[in-house]
Simulated assay, not measured.
Amino acid sequence: MERVILLTSTVKPYIGGFAGTVEKRLQEYEDAISYYLQETTFDIVVVDNSNYLFRNSNKRLRSYAFLADPEDFKYGKGFGEAKIISYAFKHDAGLQKAEQVIK
C-alpha cells in the first residue's frame, strides 16, 4: 500500500499572537520531518503557506511553498489548512496516487 505523510506548515505567520517564535516553529517542523524520515519508510510531502521551502537531500521528502493570501487569515486556521491541503494535492503527483495519506 502506497502511504504518504502530509505535513502542513506556516513557518512565518502573517499575524502576531502565534505560539513561540519563527525560529522555534521552524525547529519544531524540522524535528518532525527528521523524525518521520528516520522512523518511517513513507514519502513525506511538506507544504508551507508562508513561502518557506524546506530543504533536505533525502529523496523521500518533497517540499512545496506558496504565499497565502493575507485575506485568508480572517477565515481562521481551518480555512488556511484546507488551502494548504488543496495545494498539496494539486502539485504533488505522488500524493495524488497514494492509497493512504497520513496527516
Score class of each variant (00 low, 15 high):
10 T>D: 03
35 Y>C: 08
76 G>R: 09
43 D>R: 07
79 F>H: 15
68 A>L: 09
87 Y>S: 05
58 N>T: 07
34 S>L: 14
26 L>P: 07
69 D>F: 06
40 T>W: 00
97 K>F: 08
32 A>D: 11
24 K>V: 13
57 S>D: 10
80 G>Y: 03
2 E>M: 05
6 L>N: 04
18 F>V: 15
14 Y>M: 09
98 A>W: 02
102 I>A: 00
38 Q>P: 00
77 K>R: 15
4 V>G: 05
56 N>E: 06
98 A>G: 08
30 E>K: 15
99 E>C: 03
83 K>M: 13
91 H>T: 06
10 T>L: 09
59 K>V: 11
46 V>W: 03
15 I>T: 11
69 D>W: 07
44 I>D: 00
1 M>V: 07
56 N>I: 07
21 T>M: 07
101 V>M: 08
44 I>C: 02
27 Q>G: 03
86 S>W: 09
12 K>P: 00
44 I>W: 02
41 T>C: 06
101 V>T: 09
48 D>R: 08
45 V>Q: 04
22 V>G: 08
24 K>R: 10
30 E>A: 08
28 E>D: 14
73 F>Y: 13
42 F>H: 15
99 E>L: 05
21 T>E: 04
82 A>C: 04
19 A>I: 12
95 L>Y: 02
37 L>S: 01
93 A>E: 15
93 A>K: 12
11 V>T: 15
28 E>A: 14
41 T>R: 13
14 Y>T: 06
72 D>K: 08
18 F>D: 11
84 I>Q: 09
103 K>D: 06
82 A>N: 11
35 Y>T: 11
32 A>M: 11
82 A>D: 07
5 I>L: 01
72 D>A: 13
91 H>P: 02
66 F>W: 10
79 F>I: 10
102 I>M: 05
43 D>I: 04
37 L>D: 02
47 V>Q: 02
83 K>Y: 05
85 I>G: 06
26 L>K: 03
75 Y>P: 08
50 S>K: 06
31 D>Q: 10
22 V>D: 02
80 G>A: 10
58 N>W: 05
45 V>I: 15
33 I>K: 09
93 A>Y: 13
72 D>S: 14
37 L>V: 01
78 G>N: 13
85 I>F: 06
94 G>V: 10
77 K>F: 09
6 L>S: 05
38 Q>I: 14
70 P>Q: 05
85 I>A: 11
71 E>Q: 13
23 E>N: 09
54 F>D: 01
24 K>Y: 09
43 D>G: 03
75 Y>A: 12
58 N>S: 13
42 F>N: 12
90 K>E: 15
78 G>F: 10
5 I>Q: 02
34 S>N: 14
74 K>P: 12
5 I>D: 01
7 L>V: 01
67 L>V: 03
